[in-house]
Design a binder for these strands. Structure first.
Length: 350
DNA sequence: AAGACGTGGTT
DNA sequence: TAACCAAGTCT
């Protein structure tokens, strides 16, 4: 126990001198509001600080409190989230804001189990809010913490089998005093010193505590399990305009990939490339479909997408659940990056 | 309990 | 270019 306390003490001392200023952090010695901690933690899931910062500022300015966020329409939230990815986070963010407003009087519960029950809040985020916003003795374990702990204790077991052990070991480090700062310090250490490749052990405050460093295997940990390779899927998008130049868009289903976001209508995405006739069977209108040269490529987490685009002008615009919009007004819609690429590609060919 | 789920920057 | 990586959650 003494060893762990010393380790945390060294870490906190380092943190006090190297603490990063981040938009969601409170001044030293102060607690950040639960709303801000929650908003930042949801955005930071699988997402870099650099990518999050402008979105965080925008959200906080537009919806300063959770009640205002709860009062927003889902479409507004998705629109503000566009480009950040993992859109289920935005849907759950909105759902969570409404749950906190309706079931908890607009204040986040302090109990970890109650936090865990809210939409979009898993074990990591529940612990992060408890530690950072409420200064409870809680141990959020993210990728940074897993890496720091795997090296500190030279845990060679690869994920996911090794994760319970990493969580257990991480918890032994959490101090009774300043548990919130300790949690942030662990993540800062992982983000700035204990890097995935080329850890900067010379500048590490825990150099002398680190088993992996002693054994000279810091850069080899944590061991990663082999990753599967990404298949390629193909699709055809239909760039349909009416005589006034308006473009046909449609809303994707609420669940699943890019759920609730807008898209240029198209075929399903599958591994086999589409033939002309079978693709046009999925077109939103009967028309003279001409192929736009080139392809649009986009990489998702679990597959690569190759899209070709066919364009036509229709004489009889039919709504049929679709939305007609002038290209100049596309900024009003929640378009995922893949669809922005389609738009750019099609407009360039016009 | 693996796989689904985005995106942009770095190597 | 392709692979890897980033403060995970849900099913």
């Amino acid at each position: 126990m003494t060893r762990q306390r010393d380790t945390s003490g060294r870490l906190l001392r380092w943190y006090d001198h190297h603490r990063r200023e981040l938009p969601w952090r409170a001044p030293p010695g102060r607690r950040a509001e639960p709303y801000r901690v929650w908003l930042s933690e949801i955005m930071l899931q699988q997402t870099t600080v650099a990518a999050v910062a402008p979105y965080y500022r925008h959200f906080l300015k537009r919806w300063p409190t959770i009640r205002e966020l709860a009062a927003a329409e889902l479409d507004e939230v998705l629109h503000a989230w566009q480009g950040l990815g993992y859109y289920a986070r935005a849907r759950n963010l909105h759902k969570c804001a409404r749950a906190v407003s309706a079931e908890h009087g607009g204040r986040f519960p302090e109990d970890q189990a109650a936090l865990l029950a809210l939409p979009g809040i898993g074990p990591y985020t529940a612990a992060a809010i408890a530690a950072i916003a409420f200064d409870q003795v809680a141990t959020p374990v993210d990728g940074n913490v897993e890496r720091v702990v795997a090296r500190l204790f030279a845990v060679a077991e690869p994920a996911p089998a090794g994760k319970p052990e990493l969580r257990r070991l991480a918890a032994t480090l959490t101090p009774v005093r300043r548990p919130g700062d300790h949690a942030q310090a662990m993540m800062d250490l992982g983000a700035t010193i204990c890097l995935p490749r080329g850890p900067l052990c010379d500048g590490c405050p825990l150099h002398d505590d680190c088993q992996a460093q002693k054994q000279g295997i810091a850069a080899q940990l944590p061991r990663r399990s082999p990753k599967r390779q990404r298949p390629t899927r193909h699709g055809v998008a239909f760039w349909l305009r009416d005589r006034d130049g308006r473009l046909l868009l449609r809303r994707r289903p609420e669940e699943g990939l890019l759920g609730g976001m807008m898209e240029v209508p198209g075929t399903p995405w599958r591994e086999e490339p589409w033939g002309k006739d079978e693709a046009i069977a999925h077109a939103p209108a009967t028309a003279e479909w001409r192929e736009i040269a080139g392809t649009v490529s986009h990489v998702f987490t679990h597959f690569r997408l190759e899209l070709t685009v066919r364009a036509a002008v229709t004489e009889e615009p039919i709504g049929k659940g679709g939305i007609w919009a002038m290209p100049a007004e596309l900024g009003r819609y929640a378009l995922p990056t893949a669809m922005k690429k389609v738009v750019r590609h099609a407009l360039a060919a016009d």
